[in-house]
Design a protein around this nucleic acid. Structure first.
Lengths: 224, 224
DNA sequence: ACTATTTTTTAGACATGACTAAATATTTTA
DNA sequence: TAAAATATTTAGTCATGTCTAAAAAATAGT
């Protein structure tokens, strides 16, 4: 309902993401880190968002979205993911190129635009990184299991269903290694000293992946 | 090259449009009127744009775009018109609905995005209102003749090729009267006392159009 | 050519969203 | 549990883009 600045929208979105991870109030420093801002700036903005009743903010205790704040955050995420899907599906962007542009597009204010885009794309359920796209009513169909590649046991056969979009260089790496969504992987060996693994890709070639890589890939188990 | 604010971009775009009309320096008040701002705000911004060498500004004498300023203005207009085309052609927007959204989309900063969009739309030459779309190099293919409906003689047969997009209510009116681009019109009668005309549409029905309407429609003559 | 009118600029203010440096809470650790 | 370390807030500043009111310049009218 309200008319928010880009900055305010970015705060809401980031609080939503951090809340999803920690299931707790989001701390000032944590936000400062993610938003590349100083803690003092975060405090200022949280006050403002609290005035608008979009977050509950308790001094020294961090913040949490109100229902209205969450509703808005989800709509921004919906826009972000629909635009990413558009860029990849219709404009042939690579999955590592979409995030930056979608960060701009997500702030375009037009309900008709985003609903038309949703229709044009045939109501996609997941974006190019495998993240679920909230529907018009803000409902998000999360994946039933959230298995990460790092937690998969040896000899398991899995399919890549999601990649963390935050790191540009990770996405470039995966693109280059042809580890895209849908790729089938078998865990050949685990190296506990650095938490890296050796995997077989599509039953063909073996490669090693570092801890940093496998903790950012989600998979689903394939039954033999 | 430079990174401009939305506001700065809007100034450049508006100066370009006003220059095209008057072929002269653009006055502070004229800009204030078009940008819905006070003259003092215009002065401030023109100083800033002059510092960046995007306009030449002479105190009390108005402004004019530099080559670099014009280059940027044209790129913004390119983006605006490509987005309008996308909205109408791909997302089924009405031509009266696109302007407001395109005003936002034109500020998205990604050369790859706009060039991909251009390709996706198959390099359109004109936007939904009949205005020419600048190409990647900033070249604009203006129509050879710029005949306005108000200047057309009696009994002439003409085709609507462009409508001024500035007035929402005019666009709605034309939509409702089915006076879209490509519609063929014959001037039946001119009424000098109020500069209105009676026209025949598609050889079928007669309607009257006020001066306000016909001075905002451009046409091309059809030879019998 | 002088006055009146209009246009434009100047001066000073405000809101937004960021910052730095200092002060104050909270948490950790010995 | 008290000092040390860390996290957070407060106070004061800055740039951006806008505004109002007053001053100055340009233009028009007689």
């Amino acid at each position: 309902m309200e008319n928010l600045s880009h900055s305010e929208e970015n705060y809401l979105k980031e609080i939503f993401h951090l809340s999803a991870q920690s299931n707790d109030r989001v701390s000032t420093n944590h936000l400062a880190d993610r938003l590349n801002a100083k803690a003092s700036s975060i405090t200022d903005m949280l006050r403002k968002l609290a005035d608008k009743e979009l977050v509950s903010y308790i001094k020294y205790k961090g913040c949490r979205l109100t229902d209205e704040g969450e509703r808005i955050a989800v709509q921004i995420i919906r826009k972000h993911r629909l635009w990413e899907t558009f860029l990849v599906k219709k404009l042939s962007f690579g999955w590592e190129e979409v995030h930056e542009v979608a960060e701009q597009l997500e702030h375009i204010d037009s309900e008709k635009l985003i609903d038309s885009l949703d229709h044009f794309l045939d109501y996609p359920k997941f974006d190019p990184h495998g993240d679920p796209i909230p529907n018009k009513d803000g409902q998000i169909e999360y994946r039933s299991s959230k298995l990460k590649l790092i937690d998969v046991g040896i000899k398991s056969r899995v399919e890549i269903v999601r990649v963390n979009e935050d790191s540009l260089s990770l996405l470039k790496f995966l693109e280059q290694q042809e580890l895209t969504l849908g790729t089938v992987i078998e865990i050949m060996e685990k190296f506990p000293f650095d938490d890296s693994v050796r995997i077989k890709v599509n039953g063909e070639r073996n490669i090693n992946l570092s801890k940093k890589v496998i903790e950012n890939i989600s998979v689903k188990l394939l039954d033999e």
